[in-house]
Protein backbone atom coordinates (compact mmCIF):
# COMPACT_ATOMS: atom_id res chain seq x y z
CA UNK A 1 0.00 0.00 0.00
CA UNK A 2 1.51 3.28 -1.10
CA UNK A 3 0.32 6.84 -0.61
CA UNK A 4 -1.06 7.11 -4.18
CA UNK A 5 -3.11 3.95 -3.82
CA UNK A 6 -4.49 5.06 -0.44
CA UNK A 7 -5.26 8.57 -1.73
CA UNK A 8 -6.94 6.99 -4.79
CA UNK A 9 -9.11 4.74 -2.64
CA UNK A 10 -10.05 7.62 -0.36
CA UNK A 11 -10.96 9.80 -3.36
CA UNK A 12 -13.07 6.94 -4.72
CA UNK A 13 -14.74 6.56 -1.32
CA UNK A 14 -15.35 10.32 -1.14
CA UNK A 15 -17.02 10.27 -4.57
CA UNK A 16 -19.43 7.55 -3.42
CA UNK A 17 -20.14 9.42 -0.17
CA UNK A 18 -20.90 12.63 -2.09
CA UNK A 19 -23.41 10.75 -4.23
CA UNK A 20 -25.01 9.06 -1.21
CA UNK A 21 -25.17 12.43 0.55
CA UNK A 22 -27.04 13.93 -2.39
CA UNK A 23 -29.47 11.01 -2.52
CA UNK A 24 -29.95 10.68 1.25
CA UNK A 25 -30.21 14.28 2.41
CA UNK A 26 -31.48 16.14 -0.64
CA UNK A 27 -33.50 13.12 -1.83
CA UNK A 28 -32.42 13.94 -5.35
CA UNK A 29 -30.58 12.08 -8.09
CA UNK A 30 -30.95 14.81 -10.70
CA UNK A 31 -28.08 14.67 -13.19
CA UNK A 32 -27.01 11.19 -12.04
CA UNK A 33 -27.06 8.40 -14.64
CA UNK A 34 -28.79 5.23 -13.44
CA UNK A 35 -27.17 3.43 -16.40
CA UNK A 36 -23.69 4.26 -15.09
CA UNK A 37 -24.64 3.30 -11.53
CA UNK A 38 -25.99 -0.06 -12.73
CA UNK A 39 -22.77 -0.66 -14.66
CA UNK A 40 -20.73 0.07 -11.52
CA UNK A 41 -22.87 -2.40 -9.55
CA UNK A 42 -22.08 -5.04 -12.22
CA UNK A 43 -18.38 -4.04 -12.13
CA UNK A 44 -18.10 -4.54 -8.36
CA UNK A 45 -20.26 -7.69 -8.32
CA UNK A 46 -18.05 -9.39 -10.94
CA UNK A 47 -14.71 -8.10 -9.63
CA UNK A 48 -15.24 -8.92 -5.97
CA UNK A 49 -16.38 -12.52 -6.44
CA UNK A 50 -12.99 -13.40 -4.93
CA UNK A 51 -14.13 -11.88 -1.64
CA UNK A 52 -14.94 -15.45 -0.57
CA UNK A 53 -11.87 -17.17 -2.03
CA UNK A 54 -8.91 -14.87 -1.44
CA UNK A 55 -8.14 -12.72 1.57
CA UNK A 56 -5.75 -9.78 1.14
CA UNK A 57 -6.36 -7.62 4.20
CA UNK A 58 -9.13 -6.41 6.49
CA UNK A 59 -8.86 -3.06 4.71
CA UNK A 60 -9.44 -4.69 1.29
CA UNK A 61 -12.38 -6.81 2.41
CA UNK A 62 -13.95 -3.83 4.20
CA UNK A 63 -13.58 -1.56 1.17
CA UNK A 64 -14.95 -4.24 -1.16
CA UNK A 65 -18.06 -4.53 1.04
CA UNK A 66 -18.41 -0.72 1.10
CA UNK A 67 -18.24 -0.42 -2.71
CA UNK A 68 -20.60 -3.37 -3.23
CA UNK A 69 -23.10 -2.06 -0.67
CA UNK A 70 -22.99 1.55 -1.81
CA UNK A 71 -23.29 0.80 -5.54
CA UNK A 72 -26.28 -1.51 -5.07
CA UNK A 73 -27.99 0.85 -2.61
CA UNK A 74 -27.58 3.79 -5.03
CA UNK A 75 -29.24 1.71 -7.78
CA UNK A 76 -31.99 0.70 -5.35
CA UNK A 77 -32.64 4.31 -4.32
CA UNK A 78 -32.79 5.55 -7.90
CA UNK A 79 -35.11 2.75 -8.99
CA UNK A 80 -37.41 2.18 -6.03
CA UNK A 81 -37.30 5.10 -3.57
CA UNK A 82 -40.30 7.20 -4.58
CA UNK A 83 -38.95 10.68 -3.79
CA UNK A 84 -35.52 9.97 -5.26
CA UNK A 85 -36.90 8.22 -8.34
CA UNK A 86 -39.06 11.26 -9.13
CA UNK A 87 -35.93 13.38 -9.63
CA UNK A 88 -34.32 10.92 -12.07
CA UNK A 89 -33.78 12.35 -15.58
CA UNK A 90 -35.19 9.28 -17.29
CA UNK A 91 -35.79 10.90 -20.69
CA UNK A 92 -32.21 12.19 -20.88
CA UNK A 93 -30.47 9.04 -19.59
CA UNK A 94 -30.87 7.00 -22.75
CA UNK A 95 -27.39 5.56 -23.36
CA UNK A 96 -27.71 1.89 -24.39
CA UNK A 97 -25.63 0.48 -21.57
CA UNK A 98 -26.06 -3.13 -22.68
CA UNK A 99 -24.08 -2.21 -25.77
CA UNK A 100 -21.14 -1.66 -23.43
CA UNK A 101 -21.60 -4.87 -21.40
CA UNK A 102 -21.59 -7.29 -24.33
CA UNK A 103 -18.40 -6.09 -26.08
CA UNK A 104 -16.61 -6.04 -22.71
CA UNK A 105 -17.68 -9.64 -22.07
CA UNK A 106 -16.48 -10.75 -25.52
CA UNK A 107 -13.18 -8.89 -25.03
CA UNK A 108 -12.70 -10.52 -21.61
CA UNK A 109 -13.31 -13.96 -23.18
CA UNK A 110 -10.68 -13.20 -25.83
CA UNK A 111 -8.06 -11.24 -23.85
CA UNK A 112 -7.28 -12.38 -20.30
CA UNK A 113 -4.38 -13.74 -18.29
CA UNK A 114 -5.97 -17.08 -17.40
CA UNK A 115 -9.08 -18.74 -18.81
CA UNK A 116 -10.93 -19.42 -15.58
CA UNK A 117 -14.38 -18.29 -14.47
CA UNK A 118 -13.16 -15.85 -11.80
CA UNK A 119 -10.30 -14.52 -13.95
CA UNK A 120 -12.48 -13.82 -17.01
CA UNK A 121 -15.11 -12.05 -14.88
CA UNK A 122 -12.37 -10.08 -13.10
CA UNK A 123 -10.99 -8.98 -16.50
CA UNK A 124 -14.53 -8.18 -17.69
CA UNK A 125 -14.96 -5.89 -14.67
CA UNK A 126 -11.80 -3.98 -15.61
CA UNK A 127 -12.99 -3.45 -19.20
CA UNK A 128 -16.49 -2.48 -18.08
CA UNK A 129 -15.23 -0.02 -15.44
CA UNK A 130 -13.19 1.71 -18.16
CA UNK A 131 -16.34 2.63 -20.12
CA UNK A 132 -18.99 2.64 -17.35
CA UNK A 133 -18.79 6.44 -16.99
CA UNK A 134 -19.93 7.04 -20.60
CA UNK A 135 -23.71 7.19 -19.89
CA UNK A 136 -22.97 9.66 -17.08
CA UNK A 137 -20.86 11.89 -19.35
CA UNK A 138 -23.55 11.82 -22.04
CA UNK A 139 -26.22 12.74 -19.48
CA UNK A 140 -24.04 15.55 -18.17
CA UNK A 141 -23.61 17.05 -21.60
CA UNK A 142 -27.38 17.00 -22.10
CA UNK A 143 -28.11 18.58 -18.72
CA UNK A 144 -27.72 22.33 -18.82
CA UNK A 145 -27.44 23.14 -15.12
CA UNK A 146 -25.52 20.51 -13.18
CA UNK A 147 -25.43 21.00 -9.41
CA UNK A 148 -22.27 21.14 -7.32
CA UNK A 149 -22.60 17.64 -5.83
CA UNK A 150 -22.89 15.95 -9.24
CA UNK A 151 -19.91 17.94 -10.51
CA UNK A 152 -17.88 17.02 -7.40
CA UNK A 153 -18.84 13.35 -7.78
CA UNK A 154 -17.42 13.20 -11.30
CA UNK A 155 -14.39 15.30 -10.37
CA UNK A 156 -13.56 12.91 -7.47
CA UNK A 157 -13.99 9.85 -9.72
CA UNK A 158 -11.54 11.36 -12.19
CA UNK A 159 -9.10 12.06 -9.36
CA UNK A 160 -9.33 8.45 -8.21
CA UNK A 161 -8.35 7.23 -11.69
CA UNK A 162 -5.42 9.62 -11.94
CA UNK A 163 -4.10 8.56 -8.52
CA UNK A 164 -4.32 4.88 -9.47
CA UNK A 165 -2.06 5.52 -12.46
CA UNK A 166 0.49 7.17 -10.16
CA UNK A 167 0.12 4.10 -7.90
CA UNK A 168 0.95 1.78 -10.82
CA UNK A 169 3.99 3.85 -11.79
CA UNK A 170 5.17 3.74 -8.16
CA UNK A 171 4.59 -0.03 -7.91
CA UNK A 172 6.34 -0.65 -11.22
CA UNK A 173 9.54 0.93 -9.85
CA UNK A 174 9.32 -0.44 -6.30
CA UNK A 175 7.96 -3.99 -6.74
CA UNK A 176 9.76 -6.68 -8.75
CA UNK A 177 7.94 -7.82 -11.92
CA UNK A 178 4.91 -5.60 -11.36
CA UNK A 179 3.69 -5.63 -14.97
CA UNK A 180 -0.05 -5.81 -15.59
CA UNK A 181 -0.86 -4.77 -19.15
CA UNK A 182 -4.61 -5.50 -19.02
CA UNK A 183 -5.10 -3.49 -15.82
CA UNK A 184 -2.95 -0.62 -17.09
CA UNK A 185 -4.47 -0.27 -20.54
CA UNK A 186 -8.05 -0.49 -19.20
CA UNK A 187 -7.15 2.05 -16.49
CA UNK A 188 -5.48 4.36 -19.00
CA UNK A 189 -8.50 4.26 -21.34
CA UNK A 190 -10.75 5.09 -18.39
CA UNK A 191 -8.55 7.99 -17.30
CA UNK A 192 -8.39 9.35 -20.86
CA UNK A 193 -12.21 9.39 -21.02
CA UNK A 194 -12.21 11.58 -17.91
CA UNK A 195 -9.36 13.75 -19.22
CA UNK A 196 -11.26 14.34 -22.45
CA UNK A 197 -14.36 15.22 -20.49
CA UNK A 198 -12.50 17.57 -18.13
CA UNK A 199 -10.91 19.31 -21.11
CA UNK A 200 -14.30 20.19 -22.57
CA UNK A 201 -15.71 20.93 -19.14
CA UNK A 202 -12.86 23.41 -18.60
CA UNK A 203 -13.45 25.02 -22.01
CA UNK A 204 -17.11 25.41 -21.13
CA UNK A 205 -16.18 26.88 -17.76
CA UNK A 206 -13.81 29.52 -19.13
CA UNK A 207 -15.82 30.10 -22.31
CA UNK A 208 -19.20 30.28 -20.58
CA UNK A 209 -20.70 28.20 -23.37
CA UNK A 210 -22.35 24.80 -23.49
CA UNK A 211 -20.52 21.59 -24.20
CA UNK A 212 -20.85 20.67 -27.89
Amino acid sequence: MNIFRLAGDMTHLASVLVLLLKIHTIKSCAGVSLRTQELYAIVFATRYLDIFTSFVSVYNTFMKLVFLGSSFSIVWYMRYHKAVHRTYDREQDTFRHWFLVLPCLVLALLIHEKFTFLEVLWTFSLYLEAVAILPQLVLLQRTRNIDNLTGQYIFLLGGYRGLYILNWIYRYFTEPHFVHWITWIAGLVQTLLYADFFYYYFLRFIGGRGVE
Binding site: S57, N167, P176
Partner: peptide, 10 residues
Protein backbone atom coordinates in the same frame (compact mmCIF):
# COMPACT_ATOMS: atom_id res chain seq x y z
CA UNK B 1 8.61 -14.61 -11.43
CA UNK B 2 7.20 -13.38 -8.16
CA UNK B 3 5.84 -9.87 -7.96
CA UNK B 4 2.98 -7.71 -6.82
CA UNK B 5 -0.50 -8.62 -8.03
CA UNK B 6 -3.08 -6.15 -9.26
CA UNK B 7 -5.62 -8.36 -7.45
CA UNK B 8 -4.77 -6.66 -4.17
CA UNK B 9 -6.19 -3.43 -5.58
CA UNK B 10 -9.80 -2.33 -5.57
Amino acid sequence: PRGGSAKDEL
